[in-house]
């Protein structure tokens, strides 16, 4: 972990990002005013239930929201000193796969079945580093070695169907890391892997991150992974970040009732509890988010005020903050 408090150390700063889906009769607010920062070399978690807008936030960062249908309507995405929402599509392509890379959820489907592994890993090398032939191959082999794929020379000419799920995800990671990006977005990359393979993969990414100093955004609904992988965590609910803080702080003193509920619903080894805690109700329909705090219908501590007005940002010192009337009123 590198020094990550100095202001000039910020790699990515997202301000008021809004990404909406425009449907026939409704507007689906998938990302509704998200702001967060990622420092150089820092690992930031993005946590929330399915449908809370995590994946859409990541796709917005790469300007790859599904077309047609979705659109980034507002906000700023500062990558160092350039706002990614101001540059042309052509300039944006120089970022994708070069300065920022993504690992997607499902390794079974994120590799193209008709091209060899070597070809697919070599693509960003040829495209962004302008290396060809033997030089590019050497880099591809290095990348495959870095993600601990055994016998990379032989595996190079093989196709995705000849790889296991865990190995495929390593290939995807190698594909992202060959160009030594400054930011790696990992969108639930271990969800479809079984637990032992998952642990191996997490350790691998952690090591690679520490070696290269790459910043990472970890998207997950698994708070165990966050504890293991991240320095900071942003908790998302209904398209907004409701709490942000250092991992240790949040685990020790969660402020938002939603964060607390998420932590309570994680099974703990050795802890004696008759029944695992469960958050009542369903996440809100993003086409009609309730007025006030979107979490109030499910919140055990909801007050009248929560139903009327969205809580303002309450600073918790440093960059930590929470959006909750309980904290706001309590001070």
């Amino acid at each position: 972990m590198v020094n990550r408090n100095a202001e000039d150390d910020i790699l990515l700063r997202v301000e008021g990002l809004k990404t909406y889906f425009f449907q026939r009769n409704a507007v689906l607010k998938a990302v509704d005013g998200v702001s967060f920062t990622v420092a150089q070399g820092e690992a930031v978690g993005l946590v929330g239930e399915s449908g809370s807008g995590k994946t859409m936030t990541c796709l917005s960062l790469m300007r790859l929201v599904p077309q047609p249908g979705a659109r980034i309507v507002e906000g700023e995405i500062w990558f160092k000193d350039e706002n990614l929402l101001d540059i042309t599509e052509h300039e944006m392509r120089a970022y994708r796969g070069h300065r920022m890379a993504i690992i997607m959820q499902d390794p079974q489907t994120s590799l193209n079945p008709v091209y060899s592994i070597g070809e697919q890993v070599a693509e960003p090398v040829r495209l962004h580093l302008k290396e060809r032939g033997q030089q590019a191959m050497t880099r591809v082999l290095d990348a495959l070695r870095a993600v601990r794929i055994p016998r990379p020379e032989q595996r190079l000419v093989q196709y995705p169907h000849q790889f296991s799920g865990g190995m495929r995800q390593r290939v995807v990671a190698a594909m992202g890391l060959t160009t030594q990006p400054e930011l790696l977005i990992a969108d639930e990359p271990t969800t479809s892997l079984d637990v032992t393979i998952q642990a191996q993969f997490l350790r691998l990414i952690r090591e690679l991150q520490q070696e290269s100093g790459t910043s990472v955004i970890w998207v997950t609904h698994d708070l165990g992974i966050v504890a293991q992988m991240c320095d900071r965590v942003n908790v998302m609910y209904a398209g907004r970040i409701v709490e942000s803080g250092r991992v240790r702080q949040i685990y020790k003193e969660p402020q938002h009732p939603y964060t607390r509920a998420l932590l309570d619903s994680v099974p703990l080894m050795g802890a004696r509890r008759d029944k695992l805690y469960q958050i009542e109700g369903q996440p809100p329909d993003l086409r009609s988010i309730p007025q006030g705090c979107p979490f109030w219908p499910r919140c055990p501590e909801a007050m009248d005020k929560c139903k009327e007005q969205y809580p303002p940002r309450t600073s918790l010192g440093g960059q930590d903050f929470v959006h909750c009337w309980l904290t706001e009123e309590g001070r």
Partner: peptide, 10 residues
């Protein structure tokens, strides 16, 4: 996903 991935490669 692999088409999305190809786009994400730039």
């Amino acid at each position: 996903d692999y088409v999305a991935m190809a786009r994400a490669k730039g």
